[in-house]
């Protein structure tokens, strides 16, 4: 009687993180996020890897607002 289920193949309290996989919250992860700067700003490299420098603002004083 009841529902037939298979043998459980996971431990319920096993943490979701798998060792060796990069964690999004990892301290200093900014090194691996091109286009993001430490001064909280970003460049066109955030949006594209192709000729990104040519897509930055022509004037240094303009805010660098790359598309999504």
């Amino acid at each position: 009687m009841g529902i037939t289920v298979g043998r459980p193949d996971v431990e319920p309290d096993r943490p979701a993180h798998v060792a060796g996989v990069r964690r999004g919250n990892h301290k200093g992860f900014i090194k691996r996020q091109p286009g993001h700067r430490r001064n909280d700003r970003s460049t066109a490299r955030r949006s594209t890897g192709i000729n990104a420098r040519h897509r930055n603002p022509v004037d240094r004083d303009m805010p660098n607002l790359s598309p999504a």
Binding site: N25, R41, R46
Partner: peptide
Amino acid sequence: EVRSGVTKTFQDFKV
């Protein structure tokens, strides 16, 4: 915030 070029939306942390 965005107009001043501040686009940061995430802060890293340790659990």
